[in-house]
Simulated scan of single mutants.
Amino acid sequence: MKILVVDDDAINRLVLRKLFEKEQHTVLTAENGVEALSILMMEDDVHIVITDIMMPEMDGIELLAEIKLNDRINKLPIIGFTAGDIDYFRSITPVSFDRLLPKPMNFHELYDITHQFVAQRAV
């Protein structure tokens, strides 16, 4: 499985990278939505995007919207996470994340959720 992790927090990127690489998955990382879109345009086989919502340059909501507008990548499952108010972000987001999780995250729960989405997509 190839995962794109998008977060401006280097520690979160590192923890998520190690969690998935421990199980032999490929992890790409980006510090913001602009970098994430660039990666998605170059990589053909990303299976899922895990993104923070609050980031500089392009936040997770803008990234979600850009992905959903692009016919080549709009079927990618996208898991969002935030330290902010989840209900608020659900109410202002024009399109929905496949899953929206609160920070601090249970990284093992996120791992399980990620696997479920990729397995469902493979069916």
Rank of each mutant, 00 (worst) to 15 (best):
A122T: 12
D8C: 04
D112P: 00
L100W: 08
V15M: 14
V27L: 09
F117W: 01
E62P: 01
L16A: 12
V95W: 01
N106P: 05
L28V: 04
Y88P: 02
I73D: 06
I11M: 08
L101F: 08
D59N: 15
A65K: 13
H108V: 13
M55C: 06
I11L: 14
P104R: 05
M54P: 00
D44G: 15
D112G: 06
I53Q: 06
V49A: 10
T82S: 14
E62I: 00
T114R: 05
L16I: 13
V27D: 07
N12Q: 05
A10Y: 02
L4N: 08
E66N: 14
F117K: 08
S91V: 07
I3T: 12
I3G: 07
P56H: 01
M42R: 15
V46L: 05
P94G: 01
L14T: 10
F107E: 14
N32Y: 03
D52C: 02
R99E: 15
S96G: 09
L63D: 10
L76E: 10
D45M: 00
L110I: 11
K22H: 15
D71T: 09
I53V: 12
D71H: 10
A83T: 08
E31T: 14
S91N: 12
L110H: 06
T51P: 02
G84R: 06
A10H: 03
A119C: 04
E35T: 11
V95S: 07
I113V: 13
I3A: 07
I86N: 01
L40M: 08
R17N: 12
D59E: 03
Q120D: 13
P56K: 06
R90T: 09
A10D: 13
M55I: 06
D87G: 01
T26V: 14
M105V: 13
K2P: 07
I50M: 11
V118S: 07
I50A: 11
L28H: 15
M105T: 12
K18D: 13
I86L: 14
I39V: 15
D45S: 13
E62M: 05
D85Y: 02
L64D: 02
R121I: 06
N106H: 09
L40E: 10
R72W: 00
M105S: 09
P104A: 04
G33P: 11
P94R: 09
D59H: 00
S91G: 12
P56N: 06
K103E: 02
I50T: 04
F107H: 15
I50R: 08
F20S: 13
A36E: 04
N32I: 09
L4G: 13
A119Y: 07
I67T: 10
I73Q: 05
A36L: 03
K18M: 14
P56W: 02
S96A: 14
D45F: 02
T29N: 12
Q24E: 15
H115K: 15
L101P: 06
I67Y: 03
I86D: 01
D59G: 13
T82L: 06
Y88W: 07
F117I: 02
P77D: 07
F97H: 08
D7C: 08
Y88T: 12
A83Q: 00
L76N: 01
